[in-house]
């Protein structure tokens, strides 16, 4: 029974059941005129129109580029600092309290300040997205290194590892599961922050920008297309990354 449920086509069918129900409900709502709702058919034609004009592609690419640039800046910095804090206590003592205080501010909360400093535009958006990717990477990497089991460090001592060897052969690999968890979270946070900042700043192109414009133009159909695209893309990216993580952690008996 369980093996049947685990088969890919079966899993796909089960996974699609809830979205199908949602669409059915939506069709019924739209035809019953209870709230203002675009029927699926209208959304479908908006999708075709947006695909044809290239708007959807352009917005999607802008958002992807922004999210991944932010991730590429924030995650490595976070991983490096988190690991440094885990290895060298003084780094943690000096920077830890500041960073833990700063992360209490929701990322969107930085937008007004950054806007004042750097103007509303690409720079500000990138800073906020990078920060969103930075914190989860930093926190998880720190925990990963700090929680390395002592018994493995003792083996390193027996084998006369120097600092670099200890980091390379024990601390980093032992911390890797949590480092990758941090990066997975960073990815999700960067994605959310990207859409959020786009929506709030409304500058250039992007899925968030398109959402804002659709609201102003009262284009419910366009809005639903963009929401659908955001959800689907986020899902696919997250799924791909989880598979990457799994293959990087082959050595683990089972994954949480």
């Amino acid at each position: 029974m369980n093996s049947l449920l685990a088969r890919f086509p079966v899993r796909l069918l089960i996974g699609l059941a809830a979205p199908a129900l949602l669409i059915g409900w939506w069709q019924w709502q739209a035809s019953a005129h209870i709230v203002s709702f675009a029927p699926p058919a209208a959304v479908g034609s908006a999708l075709v129109e947006m695909l044809r004009s290239g708007d959807l592609l352009r917005d999607t690419l802008s958002t992807l580029a922004r999210a991944f640039t932010g991730l590429a800046i924030g995650a490595p910095l976070g991983v490096a600092l988190g690991i440094a804090m885990g290895i060298w206590k003084p780094v943690d003592r000096v920077l830890g309290p500041l960073l833990h205080a700063l992360r209490q501010v929701p990322m969107i909360g930085w937008l007004p300040l950054m806007g004042l400093w750097f103007g509303v535009g690409e720079g500000t958006e990138l800073i906020v997205v990078s920060m969103s990717a930075f914190f989860p990477s930093m926190l998880n990497s720190h925990a990963g290194v700090a929680e390395v089991e002592r018994r493995y460090l003792e083996v390193g001592s027996i084998l006369r590892f120097g600092t670099v060897q200890r980091i390379r052969f024990i601390l980093l690999p032992a911390a890797m599961p949590l480092v990758l968890t941090g990066i997975t979270q960073a990815l999700a946070f960067a994605w959310i922050a990207t859409i959020g900042t786009e929506l709030l700043t409304g500058a250039g192109s992007g899925l968030g920008v398109a959402m804002g414009q659709a609201q102003m133009q009262q284009r419910l159909d366009v809005m639903l297309v963009v929401i659908g695209a955001t959800a689907a893309l986020g899902f696919v990216i997250n799924h791909l990354f989880r598979r990457l993580r799994r293959s990087a952690l082959r050595w683990q008996p089972s994954l949480p």
């Binding site: 018994r151 493995y152 083996v155 084998l159 120097g162 690999p173 050595w251």
Partner: peptide, 18 residues
């Protein structure tokens, strides 16, 4: 106390590192 992130072979070879 073998390192779980390394194969058997890598674990043993690592002992020769220094």
């Amino acid at each position: 106390r073998l390192f779980p992130w390394m194969t058997l072979e890598q674990n043993i070879e690592l002992a020769l590192l220094n």
